[in-house]
Simulated assay, not measured.
Amino acid sequence: MIGLARAFGGALIFSLPMLMTMEMWWLGFYLDRFRLSLLLILNIPLLVLLSRHAGFEETVEWREDLRDASIAYGIGILASGVILYLLGIVRYDMPLDEIVGKIAIQSVPASIGALLGRSQLGGRKAESPGGPEGEAYASEMFLMAIGALFLGLNVAPTEEMILISYKMTEWHAVGLVALSVSLMHGFVYALEFKGQSPLLPGVPWWSVFLRFTVVGYAVAVLVSLYVLWTFGRTDGASAMQVLMAVVVLAFPASLGAAAARLIL
């Protein structure tokens, strides 16, 4: 019961900014149902994998992870529905499709927060799986993708993301990419934050930079592109406009990816 209470608290803490954002309310109303359904379906294996790293409890079998993921999804739906109702965003006189859409889109970040509530509020740190080095590397990339997705979901629905991309020039974009990569590397390796990853003896800095920072930024870019497509931000836009929007969104997404490596 304590774990479930922490999960509910995590769902609120991690999703409250989006629960109180007008663009997220409207997305639940008009977002293409195929893209929304795809996001909801993809969230299931994401939660299962996240449960293995930082779930409600230590798990041994994948069935336990699936159970915890289902509980987290249920808590995310419940928390989203309760808060949206108390805020007056969801009402009984609304069409059922609108109610379901508004709660469904909010349940994704809320369910992630529910699972992370255990590690953040309960003191459990996510652990990389044992086994070959490749598995540990894939685990690191997964955690970075989680961080990128979570922070990307916070800002992608806002009009400011598109407005900024229109105001920027190509040189602004190059500078923002350089800043994003530099901050990612600095947060994890250079600035001595709590939880940062130490450089192993004998491993050159450029090897770590290429294998983790550059690849991690590429993960943030892919996550940003997917989120923008899901929210319809790429519809009718030119390739250059999409690229600029991705660069803008990848800035907070890359910081989320770096923070995930520090926190989780």
Rank of each mutant, 00 (worst) to 15 (best):
residue 85 Y to D: 09
residue 149 L to D: 00
residue 37 S to G: 15
residue 63 R to Q: 08
residue 254 S to W: 04
residue 227 V to H: 00
residue 23 E to G: 06
residue 163 L to K: 14
residue 33 R to C: 04
residue 29 F to E: 14
residue 241 Q to E: 15
residue 255 L to A: 11
residue 96 L to V: 12
residue 20 M to I: 15
residue 211 R to F: 01
residue 183 L to W: 01
residue 21 T to H: 11
residue 102 K to L: 03
residue 172 H to E: 10
residue 186 G to S: 14
residue 206 W to S: 09
residue 181 V to H: 04
residue 57 E to M: 02
residue 71 I to C: 01
residue 48 V to I: 13
residue 220 A to S: 14
residue 151 L to R: 08
residue 110 A to H: 06
residue 243 L to M: 14
residue 238 S to D: 11
residue 76 G to R: 03
residue 106 Q to R: 01
residue 174 V to M: 12
residue 4 L to C: 08
residue 45 P to F: 06
residue 158 T to M: 08
residue 60 V to D: 09
residue 112 I to T: 07
residue 160 E to W: 00
residue 74 G to P: 05
residue 239 A to E: 10
residue 260 A to Q: 13
residue 232 G to I: 10
residue 230 T to W: 04
residue 150 F to V: 13
residue 262 L to A: 07
residue 34 F to L: 12
residue 239 A to C: 03
residue 12 L to G: 02
residue 38 L to H: 06
residue 218 A to W: 09
residue 173 A to N: 10
residue 259 A to S: 13
residue 221 V to T: 05
residue 143 L to K: 10
residue 55 G to S: 13
residue 43 N to M: 07
residue 126 A to S: 11
residue 249 L to A: 05
residue 52 R to D: 12
residue 95 P to Q: 11
residue 77 I to E: 00
residue 78 L to Q: 02
residue 182 S to N: 09
residue 251 F to A: 08
residue 245 A to V: 07
residue 218 A to S: 15
residue 36 L to Q: 05
residue 95 P to L: 05
residue 96 L to W: 06
residue 5 A to N: 10
residue 73 Y to W: 02
residue 225 L to I: 10
residue 25 W to E: 05
residue 235 D to Q: 12
residue 51 S to K: 10
residue 57 E to N: 12
residue 56 F to K: 10
residue 23 E to M: 01
residue 45 P to S: 09
residue 71 I to S: 02
residue 215 V to A: 08
residue 214 V to M: 09
residue 38 L to N: 10
residue 171 W to Q: 07
residue 73 Y to V: 07
residue 208 V to P: 00
residue 68 D to M: 08
residue 220 A to N: 05
residue 208 V to F: 03
residue 109 P to W: 04
residue 149 L to W: 03
residue 263 I to P: 02
residue 44 I to D: 01
residue 167 K to L: 11
residue 152 G to K: 01
residue 6 R to M: 08
residue 147 G to N: 02
residue 141 M to P: 06
residue 153 L to D: 02
residue 92 Y to M: 07
residue 118 R to F: 01
residue 9 G to M: 08
residue 223 V to A: 04
residue 97 D to I: 13
residue 205 W to C: 00
residue 32 D to Q: 07
residue 134 G to K: 09
residue 138 A to Y: 06
residue 261 R to W: 01
residue 200 L to Y: 12
residue 198 P to H: 11
residue 43 N to F: 00
residue 121 L to N: 11
residue 96 L to P: 00
residue 147 G to H: 02
residue 202 G to T: 14
residue 6 R to E: 03
residue 207 S to R: 15
residue 191 L to T: 13
residue 172 H to N: 14
residue 97 D to V: 15
residue 233 R to A: 10
residue 184 M to Q: 11
residue 43 N to I: 06
residue 57 E to F: 03
residue 75 I to H: 02
residue 67 R to G: 01
residue 69 A to R: 08
residue 30 Y to V: 14
residue 223 V to Q: 00
residue 2 I to W: 04
residue 102 K to Y: 00
residue 202 G to M: 08
residue 39 L to G: 08
residue 56 F to H: 07
residue 222 L to S: 05
residue 41 I to Q: 08
residue 127 E to M: 05
